[in-house]
Amino acid sequence: MNVIYITSRLDKNHGGLTASLLNKARIMKEYKDIGCRILSFHLDPNFNNVMKNLKERYNLKKKI
């Protein structure tokens, strides 16, 4: 089972709703083994760097 989360943008410096979404994705995987996809409407030329930073910051490596 996979859950799809949709957000307007993923940035290195983001607000509480994005933090909540990322924490929820981690918790769902850790405790219920439910995977997820995160979709964003904002195209960032540094997307790979942003995602690397967010995965480290929220302990999402190999989880999403």
Rank of each mutant, 00 (worst) to 15 (best):
N13H: 06
H14V: 08
H14A: 07
H14C: 10
H14G: 08
G16Q: 12
G16M: 09
G16A: 12
G16D: 05
L17N: 00
L17M: 06
T18Y: 00
T18G: 01
A19C: 11
S20R: 09
L22R: 03
N23H: 09
A25Q: 07
A25F: 02
A25I: 09
A25R: 08
R26L: 06
M28W: 10
M28K: 09
M28A: 10
K29G: 06
E30R: 15
Y31A: 12
Y31G: 02
D33K: 15
I34R: 10
I34Q: 07
G35T: 13
C36D: 10
R37T: 12
I38W: 03
I38D: 02
I38R: 00
F41L: 14
F41E: 05
H42Q: 12
H42W: 15
H42K: 13
D44N: 14
D44G: 02
P45A: 06
F47M: 13
N48S: 13
N49H: 13
K52T: 07
K52N: 13
K52E: 14
K52L: 08
N53L: 11
N53C: 08
L54K: 07
K55R: 14
E56G: 04
R57P: 00
Y58V: 01
Y58R: 01
N59C: 05
N59I: 06
N59Y: 12
